[in-house]
Computed example of a mutant assay.
Amino acid sequence: MAKPPTTTRRSINLLLDHAANHLDIGAPLPSETRMAEIAESSRTAVRGALRHLAEHGLVASMKERYLLRKPRPDDYFDVSELHSATEQLQQVLMERIYERDLPPGAEFTEAELSRAAGVSTIAVREFLIGFSRNGLISKNPRGGWRLCAFDTKYAQELGEAREMFELKSIERIAALPPGDPVFARLDELLARHEALAGEPAEGRAEFPALDREFHTFLIGLLDNRFAENLNEVVSMVYHYHYQWDKRDEIPRNRHALQEHLAILRPLASGDVPAALAAMRIHLRSSRSTMLNSLRNREGRTHAQ
């Protein structure tokens, strides 16, 4: 399995410190909002940290958030694993986009990102130059950077690459032995999707983060650096782009949530062929929705 992102590793260490110093065995963990303050991070990073703690036997589960044992030294990530400037910058940039601190078309400076990520402006500049090759950001002639849109060809190519990796991820599950920890993670993801599906459609603001978590989980099964890099771009492209046109956000999320369930249910029961078929439908649907959204935006632009 892939390591958690740098911000999640930092959150894990800070939550371990809190548990060691302030919680007794059997005590409930604080609220997500309070844990985000303790971990000095977003609630998305906190959920990733909680998942890690549950997988390593410190917390009962994502739902039953009470301490099973006190942290040991080997539960912590080494300091050397907490300072990947590239990971930190990418995580901060995506979180700012998800939380809408950076709306579509927004401009930002290297100094802003440097302060937010806690890394040098030199590291920021190198990261942005490299990341600009994805076509999602561009350098302003007068200085600074700008978040960009992208065209249908870009979306088509990205969708094709995504399909190869994600179908391979589901095939990988078929080769796992019974009792592998992956199946417990599958059950947890399924339960969270079922819970979200039971909420009113207008209250499903958590879906974009859960969607990214679902696809990141699948890609992580490959333990492939190229797949992981692509997944970050896919996540940013799909969730970032939809901020340009939010008119059908609620039905779009509702439909995608049901498609996730159609994949997770057979996966959790061991029916890999059914999960593969459902994943093909989901990827085609996702790509079609994205392309239609892009064409609509391009049509409105030309009409102006």
Score class of each variant (00 low, 15 high):
residue 246 K to F: 01
residue 91 Q to R: 13
residue 49 A to P: 00
residue 48 G to I: 06
residue 18 H to C: 09
residue 5 P to G: 13
residue 8 T to N: 08
residue 153 K to L: 13
residue 143 G to A: 01
residue 163 E to K: 14
residue 12 I to M: 06
residue 54 A to D: 05
residue 21 N to H: 08
residue 230 L to Q: 05
residue 13 N to G: 05
residue 23 L to M: 06
residue 114 S to M: 08
residue 293 S to I: 02
residue 247 R to K: 11
residue 59 V to P: 00
residue 85 A to F: 05
residue 296 N to D: 12
residue 34 R to I: 11
residue 178 P to C: 09
residue 280 R to E: 12
residue 278 A to E: 00
residue 135 G to V: 04
residue 105 G to V: 10
residue 233 V to A: 02
residue 108 F to R: 10
residue 37 E to G: 14
residue 266 P to I: 01
residue 137 I to Q: 00
residue 167 L to C: 08
residue 64 E to S: 05
residue 230 L to M: 08
residue 50 L to R: 01
residue 222 L to C: 12
residue 171 E to V: 03
residue 89 L to T: 01
residue 35 M to N: 10
residue 21 N to E: 15
residue 244 W to K: 07
residue 141 P to D: 07
residue 133 R to E: 13
residue 178 P to N: 07
residue 299 G to Y: 08
residue 230 L to Y: 03
residue 32 E to H: 15
residue 262 A to M: 03
residue 84 S to R: 11
residue 123 A to G: 10
residue 125 R to A: 12
residue 34 R to V: 13
residue 189 L to P: 02
residue 66 Y to S: 03
residue 70 K to G: 04
residue 119 V to C: 10
residue 78 D to M: 13
residue 293 S to C: 08
residue 170 I to S: 12
residue 78 D to S: 14
residue 196 L to K: 09
residue 300 R to K: 07
residue 222 L to S: 09
residue 223 D to H: 14
residue 50 L to N: 01
residue 127 F to T: 07
residue 156 Q to V: 02
residue 282 H to T: 01
residue 157 E to N: 13
residue 75 D to A: 04
residue 279 M to I: 06
residue 155 A to S: 07
residue 139 K to F: 00
residue 254 R to D: 15
residue 277 A to M: 00
residue 287 R to L: 07
residue 67 L to F: 02
residue 115 R to Q: 12
residue 169 S to M: 11
residue 205 A to H: 13
residue 45 A to M: 06
residue 9 R to Y: 03
residue 58 L to W: 06
residue 227 A to I: 10
residue 46 V to Y: 01
residue 217 F to P: 09
residue 97 I to Q: 11
residue 226 F to G: 07
